[in-house]
Amino acid sequence: MKRLLIALAALACIAAASDPSERLADPAQEARARALFKEVRCLICQNEAIDDSTADFAKDVRLVIREQIAAGRSDVQVKDFLTDRYGEYVLFRPSLSGANLALWTAPFLVLLIGGVLLMMRLRNRATPEALSPEEEAALARLTRTDDA
């Protein structure tokens, strides 16, 4: 374990697996482009990000994004450009507005409701009584028939 950690520590971060013919010269810009690629859908593929796809569409969009990043535009600007061109469907992360709020909040709402229900269940509790003599007798009868 320790050996492995040290071995890993010795490594520098290696160039990404992007196509060498497409790569930007500036590593920082390239890293930003790669991060964006993971959030952009390849519209003609089956549920793939353009980062993973070999389709022409993905290649074209990668090129456009790299051009825009090289031209100094921010991530937000690039995303706006993409949604203007292809609609919201092109981004893998739904916007935090409008109807999508229901999507973002529903799981946390379940957490909240569950928590409230648990509190209510815990609050109205009574101490359980010990077995009454009659119950003890009935129980003894039931367990005895078993041994017989």
Binding site: G87, E88, P94
Partner: peptide, 23 residues
């Protein structure tokens, strides 16, 4: 929700987002 949301939006005539790994 993440899986069905695009379908729900399409059925309700809302703009359809993609719900992917970032969500």
């Amino acid at each position: 929700f993440g899986t069905l949301w695009p379908l729900i939006c399409e059925a309700l005539d809302l703009p359809t987002p993609s719900v992917g790994p970032p969500f």
